[in-house]
């Protein structure tokens, strides 16, 4: 069963940036794109479990801070080695000034 979780304020994330959100023993990365949309993926890189919230958001990609592997954070698709396994993504909605994710 899925439910919507209040993750953060909409202004907690700068444009073209990412923050970490931890919930019930799981960790997520929440992104704000340059066109002001919000997205959510698993927090840890699928290569070596480094948190993506320390990485670099460029356009619609997130780059892992350890080995520079890249994902499209909208789809979770792995774009550049050494990442090969896609990230799980989660639905996001903004209600008022809050960002909610469905997990």
């Amino acid at each position: 069963m899925t439910n919507w979780i209040d993750a953060c304020g909409a202004d907690d994330i700068e444009e073209e940036d990412v923050i970490r959100f931890d919930h019930e023993g799981r960790t997520f990365a929440i992104y704000r794109s340059p066109d002001d949309n919000y997205f959510c993926t698993d927090g840890l890189c699928s290569h070596e479990q480094v948190h993506l919230a320390d990485g670099l958001v460029m356009d619609h990609t997130i780059e892992c801070p350890k080995h520079n592997g890249q994902f499209d954070y909208r789809s979770g698709e792995a774009l550049r080695a050494p990442v090969c396994v896609n990230l799980a993504t989660y639905p996001v909605k903004v209600e008022g000034d809050r960002v909610l994710i469905e997990i």
Binding site: H47, E48, K66, H67, A81, P82
Partner: peptide, 13 residues
Amino acid sequence: PVSWRWSHARHHT
């Protein structure tokens, strides 16, 4: 270029 990308990733890990 393929092998060494992985080798260097290991060097950083």
